[in-house]
Amino acid sequence: MTGFKYGVSLYSYTDDFGTVMTLDDAFDHVADTGSTGIEILGETSVPLYPEPPVSWIDDWFAKLERYRLEPTNLACWVDTRIQIDRRMSEEEGAAQIAQDLRLAHRLGFKFIRPKFGVMDRELTPDPIWEGAIERSLDLAHQLDVVILPEIHAPTPIRHPVTEGYVAFIERTGTKHFGLMIDTGIFQDRPLDAWGGGDFEAIKKGAPEMVYGTKVPVEHLADVIQYVPFIQAKFHNIDEALHDHQIPWERIVPMLKKLGYAGYLSSEYEGRRDPWVAIEQVRRQHALLRTLEEEYDAAHGAPLAETADA
């Protein structure tokens, strides 16, 4: 039996980063959760993206070593609706992905998450996605970086978007394209705040984002073989380590049962008052570790592995 790997996405610290938090501070907060992995957003965390100064890259690797963290996923975007009156071509999409694959490789990341522009409310990606990805597979293979589109609310697992990605994997036989699950799809109770937006307007305009997609955790079994990375999206965990929206007490046992041994990378998306995210991420780590330990205790803990380590 193997355990989860724990990480944090710096998306969690949105609005703190650049106003009350430096990259050094962020590394310190992530490392102190006991995480082994750090996820960043290329366009947010990398100065002068896509061409950071060499001195910054040196410092990046020095920080990884000092805080004993490994780079996990580099979040990136394919801005298909690039101008008011023009959408990106397949070639431009492929060039964007190539740029992010190279940057990820240079910074030591294992995964990139390109977020494609969408066509509708179900988040159907711009049709260039398939050609742009197919043109990128050789480079991904060469650099050994895996491309992961995100299955994100309100798109469930049993849906043409997810099925289209799975069909692509099965058609190409690639090992360098997979699925990233954002645990926001399991949200089963309403949000009580929205990070940085007009909550009342969102309730009215996009109720599906407020009330939850409510995907049954059993559906993970359909796709888990293609999921090497999970963004552990959450919004509010209280003092009793009770999550108000995401049913971790069902998600964690299902992931354990399915043998998932990849990262749970915290993605806090709740109230954006200064420094709240630091504490929220810590609560999530305490909660997830408790649930994992409870599962292990009930199903034979991996004590031998712990003793060997």
């Binding site: 008011i84 494609f116 522009g117 969408v118 409310r121 988040l123 711009d126």
Partner: peptide
């Protein structure tokens, strides 16, 4: 802001 990954009817999104 125009966020290409938001559905078309939510664009532009206004940050106030």
């Amino acid at each position: 802001y125009r966020h290409p990954y938001f559905p078309p009817e939510f664009q532009p999104a206004i940050a106030r």
